[in-house]
Design a protein around this nucleic acid. Structure first.
Lengths: 252, 252
DNA sequence: ATCGTTAGAGTACGCCGTACGGAAAGACCA
DNA sequence: TGGTCTTTCCGTACGGCGTACTCTAACGAT
């Protein structure tokens, strides 16, 4: 396995991997720990849930009623805490019923990912370049590979197809989360927002310069009736494509 | 057009839109400006090119040999500067030859986007939720809509298909950029990196827990011969899907 | 020559991550 | 039991950030 092909932690290093897979037990000597690693991660998620970019060591410590620097007994730093939070989010992913045909299982995976991103929007806003190499991330990944292997496609195509499914959901969620939460996050009132946009359409939008957009607008192309329609359209198209490559619905 | 359907600037507001579309001329009164808005944006791109997360007002000012606060005469703040940089990056996008069939033009758009993201990786690492509502971003978007309209598909499907193409390239670039630049950015040496990963495979990777990954690994599924193969696989699959929806290669 | 306007930039405030070091808690051993 | 060693907790402090405020000086208009 080429090393750069599987998801890697942003903060590379043995220490991080050990923290993810095998967190050290509380030491026998010295004063007792007032917290557990899990509590710290939970507090981080609580802070991030309130507002993505308010996640700071000081806020997390405050959440726990603890001095800021105490956190560093549990976690090497902010980035590492964040990676633990990400892996924790993946821990709550459900896996599809293995009795379903592969396509149903793949769709289930995609919907679970969608649910996860909606429940934890901070997963998206992060500067994390790839998912950390954590146990729960890998468990889900493993199961997705299992599902796509059911198509009978060759190994390279399976890896690519799985990556495509995953990355599509991520991209769609990224766009979705924007619409629902950007106003709340930035404190921009809905009125300001629409006023600014209206000013744009009136002042700068030109029929000559943007004829296709105008045509699509007039034809209702931007009136989404079903909010999930956009991303499910992409998902079905991708699954159709994979199914065709596999030469039909297949055995699983 | 539902307002939340077209790309919007992260920093909503009339001021930002005016800055993007119609930057104010140098005032007649008072001392002459030592810089231009373009120079400030260029300096920002130069700093970002060196290292994504080193982009700060102080660094940009240093790059220009100017006091930090002087930048605020040209730009309302850091976020706004960043949006101007993004729109500038899109300005360098070439548009496809209109004589080509739609699929060729769509592929051209995707390759141009790919080229742009590789040339300006900071476009990806940003916390920008969507592309700003800038003139150059919209010009490219308009042309992509024009191309997808050639399929003859209905308006809703055209918008969705265009969004799918765009978001696929973004996602693929995001993954790609990681591999090539994350080590350089974080200063983690290649040795550290591989040592940590090797430790993982030896210690925690279990054949029972990750059988599909093991199988794919043994079958060479992770040995990418062609580095662009992954994302072009997805692109072709998506374009195939669109073509099929359109009922064949179509007239354009 | 004067006045109003504006660019430039120094200073300062409140955030951030975190290095460092001291105090106290508790386990182990003599 | 007393001493020692380990480890937690956390106050302080440093350097970085975005940017509000304010003063100075340059310049156009009169």
């Amino acid at each position: 396995m080429t090393d750069d092909q599987l998801p890697a932690g942003t903060t590379a290093g043995q220490a991080m991997i050990e923290l993810l897979w095998d967190p050290p037990p509380a030491p026998r000597r010295g004063p007792r720990q007032r917290l557990t690693l899990d509590q710290v991660v939970d507090a981080g998620m609580a802070v991030a849930a309130r507002s993505v970019d308010e996640l700071s060591m000081r806020k997390v410590a405050q959440e726990l009623g603890v001095g800021t620097m105490s956190l560093y007994t549990y976690v090497p730093g902010r980035d590492e805490l964040f990676e633990l939070m990400v892996d924790r989010a993946w821990r709550m992913r459900e896996l599809p019923d293995r009795e379903l045909p592969w396509r149903g299982q793949a769709a289930f995976h995609a919907h679970e990912a969608w649910r996860m991103y909606r429940a934890h929007p901070w997963l998206i806003s992060s500067n994390l370049w790839r998912m950390p190499l954590g146990p729960h991330v890998l468990d889900v990944q493993e199961d997705l590979y299992r599902v796509v292997l059911l198509t009978g496609l060759d190994a390279v195509t399976v890896v690519r197809a799985a990556g495509l499914i995953e990355s599509h959901v991520f991209g769609a969620a990224r766009a979705e989360i924007t619409d629902t939460s950007v106003a709340a996050r930035t404190g921009v009132t809905q009125d300001d927002y629409y006023a600014a946009r209206a000013g744009f359409w009136g002042t700068y939008f030109s029929e000559q310069r943007f004829p296709s957009m105008l045509r699509l607008w007039n034809a209702g192309g931007f009136d989404a009736d079903n909010p999930d329609g956009d991303w499910e359209f992409g998902l079905e198209l991708i699954l159709d494509g994979i199914e065709r490559l596999a030469g039909g619905p297949g055995p699983g």
